[in-house]
């Protein structure tokens, strides 16, 4: 089976600090992959590089054979819009738009008319038990509700890959579990692959497979010599 997304030998430095120093990542269609590691080890940077949000200094990221760093901003944006979905710890919702409009946003940016876009958004909100909050602004939602809206937005374009960076980082274990159940459930149903960055093993346990980032590297396991 061919990988959906491959990242090889990624290096990334911010000034003198190395965030990535040779990290690899392979993501297969439909799988849920956890990325674990200590704080500051480079998990987020790896995810950003894999999603084309950051360009690595070295190494390449290929999505279905397309090298992300060779795509221009317009194509990368289109990729973000159609093929990728994002759930971050916070801050990814537009505070001025209602929950419904936030969920419909990627569709609208992709040229879908308002009516059908919002219908699809409403259906997703329903699935995430948020129908009664469709008209609320992110500021009026609890952290867990905001994350569920974010999940709905990540799913609305039926993406191939969902990138989630500490999606439950700010939530208690019950709401976190709820968000994870909804996220992984929906992803499995639609066949989307998920890159799940977390340092919480219980969250990582939702994945099918896991990798560990240490000091910017994703070392293969050494034997007990």
């Amino acid at each position: 089976m061919n990988a959906l997304l491959t990242a090889e030998g990624l290096h990334k430095a911010y000034g003198p600090t190395f965030a990535l120093a040779g990290a690899d990542l392979q993501l297969y269609a439909g799988e849920i992959l956890s990325v674990m590691g200590p704080s500051g080890s480079g998990k987020s940077t790896l995810l950003h590089c894999a999603a084309g949000l950051t360009t690595p200094d070295q190494g390449r990221v290929a999505y279905l054979g397309r090298v992300l760093s060779e795509l221009d901003d317009v194509r990368r944006s289109a990729l973000r819009r159609r093929e990728f979905g994002f759930v971050f710890q916070f801050g990814q919702l537009v505070p001025e738009l209602t929950a419904l409009e936030n969920v419909a946003l990627p569709l609208r940016l992709d040229g879908v008319r308002r009516k059908p876009a919002e219908q699809r958004a409403a259906a997703l909100l329903e699935r995430l038990h948020l129908s009664d909050k469709a008209k609320a602004r992110p500021g009026e939602l609890s952290g867990g509700q905001q994350q569920r809206v974010a999940v709905a937005r990540a799913l609305v374009t039926e993406p191939k890959v969902i990138f989630a960076d500490e999606p439950t980082g700010a939530l208690d274990s019950v709401s976190g579990e709820q968000v994870m159940d909804l996220l992984t459930g929906a992803a499995r149903r639609s066949g989307a692959a998920v890159v799940l960055v977390t340092h919480d093993a219980r969250i990582a346990a939702y994945a099918d497979r896991g990798i560990v980032v240490r000091d910017g590297r994703t070392p293969a396991r050494a034997g007990i010599r």
């Binding site: 949000l53 901003d73 317009v74 990368r76 944006s77 289109a78 973000r80 819009r81 159609r82 990728f84 994002f86 801050g91 990814q92 919702l93 537009v94 505070p95 946003l105 990627p106 940016l109 992709d110 937005r153 374009t157």
Partner: peptide, 12 residues
């Protein structure tokens, strides 16, 4: 920035 994450390119 949030809109850009949702898939808008810089011109948009």
């Amino acid at each position: 920035a949030a809109i850009r994450l949702a898939g808008a390119d810089s011109r948009v």
